[in-house]
Nucleic acid binder design. Structure first.
Length: 532
RNA sequence: GUCCCUGUAGCUCAGACGGAUAGAGCAACAGAUUUCUAAUCUGUAGGCCACAGGUUCGAAUCCUGUCAGGGACGCCA
């Protein structure tokens, strides 16, 4: 709906031949008396045009009212220093309810993305141990972002990069090998119980050459299971080793050399990343002739572009933030547009139980795995908890609270709203109360009806914003608000009554509300129960 | 020392693009159920938006500095 309002403003600007590059800000005011949408264009324009903002606002108001042939707006008012407050007509809101029933599962979707292909890489944990809670956050956030972007018209593919080539997996092999031969695990090796399990599993298979591959495969399989249990499915699993295999890494080094952004020093090949704003230059090929992880990663990202994705998104933990600049620099150096590689840095997760922090230590092997968390609190609460906060904030994840069925755990609040909506429809059927005609919605014009309908109308805008900012938590907040509006409506208005037309009208509204809540839960991979 | 994130009610957090009286849940207190699910609703109370400057018609939001918490600064991955 915001874009419809924006269209009126653009048309106004065009009619006055005013050039306006900045985005048009259309707000949903906090205060209800200010209407459904608020526009500050007159305030911004007054500087440029040199006119009193209120006079300008009056002019815009007159223009909008004159152009509104379909009766979308009920009221357009000039207020305060020069805001234009817009109130939608009830008719527009009622029509939106019908639109929801018609579009059903597709309601809220749009084509903002214009089918642009995006490769979204996330989790990409080392295949050296089970996934932990931190990975859980990236898994849920990454998956949600993919779902949001798909819903607004991008063609998104999800990828997991398997670091199966470096020193880490070598250490894994050494560790397993040591156990099999009854030796102590070497310094820097992996000591968790899972290493012992792998050793037990592989003890009968004697071929030591295949030990590493088998250990990796085993861990990877478990990681895949855990992610699948969370409802996270990747389109591609990309092996780092496959890059080394094909010698493409050397080709990348040559490309960089050809671009003139490298130099040799102390036997190593360096990338002059300081030319691109990095704080120091970075080694691409070591003195030993071995490529660095960095060069491998450049190759990998190059590979992504070459597979036909003009836009790349990576989701990383904050412990990798120092790496952002150099990777982006390398892509710019190779001629890819700035901004076409987007890296989302998320803060880490601390695990709590009843307010006490649960320490995670790989060294002692004492840790709670993601799998255990999912088993303990369930998929819905896990997905909700990991998605409920902005990824830029540290997340304190309290296992006990996540299990509670209270408002400390809002996932139930949302699901309860859906169950209640379902229950009303079920009960109506049982009592023979039904929707006579969808057009009965046109008799609903009370303040409560209006408020609820307005929330439903806002959903597509909220989804679009959440997707473009890559912030799934915004959608959860919206869903919570919508649920509040509905719960409140429910207490004030009886849906099923002797008044057949009124019942019919309210059943239409209930159906539409249920569709929107269900769509949001579906989108975020949380189940929408009919009964609780 | 340099860089990144965070600092909003007692607690957990929303407040994209600067806007009109800063919001929600939990906890506290007071209420609501013969009626479609009380895992719900209604109300009261609770704030120097870390601190200090600056930018402007207007700042929780932008800029600078300070303080506090977390993280990163390898020819590791």
């Amino acid at each position: 709906m915001k874009s419809a309002v924006a269209a009126f403003l653009r048309s106004y600007l065009a009619s006055k031949k005013i050039h306006w590059d900045e985005t048009l800000v259309i707000d949903i005011p906090k205060q209800k008396s200010f209407g459904d949408f608020s526009v500050n264009l007159a305030l911004l324009l007054s500087k440029k045009v040199g006119q009193n903002p209120r006079t300008l606002a009056e002019e815009i108001k007159a223009y909008i009212l004159n152009q509104d042939k379909k009766g979308i707006f009920e009221k357009v008012e000039v207020a305060g220093p020069g805001f234009i407050n817009i109130t939608l007509s009830v008719k527009k809101l009622q029509e939106t309810v019908l639109e929801i029933l018609k579009k059903d599962k597709k309601y809220g979707h749009s084509n903002l993305g214009n089918k642009t292909r995006i490769l979204l890489e996330f989790v990409s944990a080392n295949p050296t141990g089970p996934l932990h809670v931190g990975h859980g956050r990236w898994a849920v956030i990454g998956d949600d972002i993919a779902r949001l972007l798909s819903a607004v018209g991008y063609k998104v593919h999800k990828e997991f990069y398997i670091n199966d080539a470096g020193r880490q997996v070598e250490m894994l092999k050494e560790s397993v090998h040591a156990i099999l031969e009854g030796r102590d695990i070497p310094a820097g090796g992996y000591k968790g119980v899972y290493v012992k399990e792998i050793a037990d599993l592989l003890s009968s298979k004697q071929d030591p050459k295949k030990l590493k591959a088998r250990a990796i495969k085993h861990i990877l399989t478990q990681q895949k299971h855990t992610l699948a249990a969370l409802g996270v499915k990747f389109n591609f699993w990309f092996s780092e080793k496959s890059l080394h295999h094909k010698k493409t890494i050397q080709k990348t080094a040559k490309e960089l050399v050809d671009k003139g952004v490298t130099y040799a020093k102390e036997g190593a090949l360096w990338f002059r990343s300081t030319d691109f704003g990095d704080d120091k230059d970075r080694v691409l090929v070591r003195g030993s002739g071995e490529p660095t992880y960095f060069l491998g990663d450049i190759t990998y990202h190059l590979n992504k572009y070459k597979r036909g994705y003009p836009h790349l998104i990576d989701v990383w933990g904050t412990d990798h933030h120092g790496y952002v600049k150099r990777l982006k620099s390398s892509m710019v150096a190779l001629g890819y547009p700035e901004g076409s590689l987007e890296i989302i840095i998320g803060q880490l997760v601390s695990l709590y139980r009843r307010g006490e922090q649960v320490r995670m230590s790989k060294r002692t092997g004492e840790m709670i795995t993601l799998k255990e968390v999912i088993e303990e609190i369930g998929v819905d609460a896990t997905r909700y908890y990991f998605a409920m906060n902005d990824v830029h904030t540290h997340l304190d994840f309290d296992l006990e609270k996540a299990k509670e069925k209270s408002m400390e755990n809002p996932v139930y609040y949302l699901q309860y709203a859906h169950a209640r909506l379902s229950s009303i429809l079920r009960e109506a059927k049982k009592r023979g109360s039904k929707i006579k005609s969808k057009k009965d919605i046109f008799i609903l014009d009370g303040a409560d009806d209006r408020d609820l309908m307005k929330m439903l109308l806002d959903y597509p805008d909220e989804l679009a914003v959440a997707a473009s900012l890559r912030q799934p938590h915004r959608l959860l907040n919206f869903a919570k608000d919508l649920a509040t509006y509905f719960h409140s409506y429910y207490h004030k208005n009886r849906v099923i009554s002797d008044d057949k037309t009124l019942s019919s009208a309210r059943l239409v509204l209930v159906s539409a509300t249920r569709i929107v809540i269900r769509n949001i839960l579906d989108l975020l991979g949380i189940s929408a129960p009919d009964k609780m």
